[in-house]
C-alpha cells in the first residue's frame, strides 16, 4: 500500500509544479525556471524544518515566498525579452540555481550528526514527517490538500478578471497594451505567482523524499513542468492534473513492466497524444461541450 501512497505523493507534487508553469503559460511565456524555483523552495523549507526546527507549513510558505520574491526580481529583466529568448534566459537561470545548490554547504552539528545541505552530496535527512510519525497515507493527504487548495485558487483566478487579462496578454500583447493593460506588471505578476507555487511544490518534495540534491532540479524537471499544462491544455487547471496522471501515472509507473521498452514508448506516447489533441487534452471544444452540459443540467433542475 505504501507504494501506492508514495505514487499519490509524486503525482501531487508534480501537479503543483505543473500548475506553477500553467500560470506563466497563460501569458504566453514558456518558463524553464520552474525546477529552479522548486529547488529554492525545497532547500529553504528543508533548512527551516531541519536546522531551525520549524513546522513544515511555515517552512513551506517561507520557501515559496522566497522563490516568489526571486521570481519577481528576476522577472523584470527576464521579461524584457519574450518567446524563445525568454525560455533560454529562464533555462540559464534554472541552471544557475541548480549549480548554486551544488556549491552550497551549510552544516551544523547536532547530537553527533552533521546536518544540513552539503554541496554535491545533497541535503540528507529532511526528516520532519518520520520524526513526527506521519504515515505515508497522512503525507499523501497533506500533499493533496495543497494540490486541491492551489487548484481551487487558480480555478477561481481563471474565472476572475485577472484570468481574462492573463489570457489576453497571452493571445496578443499589442492589443492587450492598447486596451490599457500594463504588460510588464501582468507578466511579472504571473511569473511571481508561478515561482511561489513552484517553491511550495519544492517544499513538499524535499520532505516526502527526505533527501534532495541539485540533480533533482535539472532540465528534466523543468521540461516536465511545462509539458504537463501544454499536454493537458490551457483551458483549465484540470488539464494539468490529467496530464500528470497520464505521464507519471500511466507512462512512467504504469509501463514499468515493459522494462527498457518503456523509455522508447514514453516518447512515442507523448508524440501520439500531442498529435491527437494538439491543443491539449482539454481544449476549447471540450470546455464548450462541458459548459453546455452544465447549463442544460442547471436549466433542467
Amino acid at each position: 500500500m505504501d507504494f501506492i501512497w508514495g505514487l499519490v505523493q509524486i503525482l501531487g507534487v508534480h501537479t503543483i509544479i505543473g500548475l506553477s508553469a500553467y500560470v506563466i503559460l497563460l501569458t504566453g511565456q514558456v518558463s524553464m525556471a520552474q525546477a529552479g524555483f522548486c529547488a529554492i523552495g525545497a532547500y529553504i523549507a528543508g533548512m527551516l524544518t531541519v536546522l531551525a526546527e520549524w513546522h513544515i507549513i511555515p517552512g513551506m510558505l517561507v520557501g515559496g515566498l522566497a522563490a516568489g520574491a526571486l521570481a519577481c526580481v528576476v522577472g523584470f529583466p527576464a521579461l524584457r525579452v519574450k518567446g524563445l529568448m525568454f525560455t533560454v534566459a529562464t533555462l540559464a537561470f534554472g541552471e544557475f540555481v541548480r549549480l548554486f545548490w551544488f556549491n552550497f554547504d551549510y552544516q551544523i552539528s547536532r547530537g553527533g550528526f552533521e546536518i544540513g545541505p552539503l554541496g554535491g552530496e545533497g541535503f540528507r535527512q529532511i526528516r520532519f514527517f518520520p520524526e513526527n510519525g506521519w504515515s505515508t497515507l497522512e503525507v499523501a493527504i497533506f500533499v493533496w490538500v495543497w494540490v486541491i487548495l492551489i487548484m481551487a485558487i487558480l480555478w477561481w483566478m481563471d474565472r476572475s478578471r485577472i484570468g481574462a487579462v492573463l489570457r489576453a496578454v497571452g493571445e496578443d500583447e499589442l492589443a492587450a497594451q492598447s486596451v490599457g493593460i500594463n504588460l510588464t506588471a501582468v507578466k511579472v505578476t504571473a511569473f511571481t505567482i508561478g515561482g511561489f507555487i513552484a517553491g511550495l511544490g519544492g517544499g513538499i518534495y524535499a520532505h516526502y523524499t527526505t533527501h534532495v540534491e541539485h540533480l533533482n532540479f535539472g532540465v528534466l524537471l523543468a521540461t516536465f513542468a511545462i509539458a504537463y499544462p501544454i499536454l493537458g491544455g490551457l483551458r483549465t487547471v484540470v488539464g494539468t492534473l490529467l496530464a500528470v496522471l497520464f505521464i507519471q501515472g500511466v507512462l512512467v509507473e504504469g509501463l514499468r513492466f515493459l522494462g527498457d521498452l518503456r523509455n522508447i514508448l514514453f516518447g512515442a506516447f507523448i508524440v501520439l497524444a500531442m498529435n491527437l489533441r494538439p491543443a491539449g487534452f482539454i481544449d476549447a471544444r471540450v470546455t464548450r461541450a462541458l459548459g453546455r452540459l452544465f447549463r442544460a443540467e442547471r436549466g433542467g433542475a
Partner: peptide
C-alpha cells in the same frame, strides 16, 4: 487596428 486584433479565444 487596421487588421482586427481581438482576443479571439476569449
Amino acid at each position: 487596428f487596421q487588421n482586427i486584433r481581438l482576443f479571439s479565444e476569449l
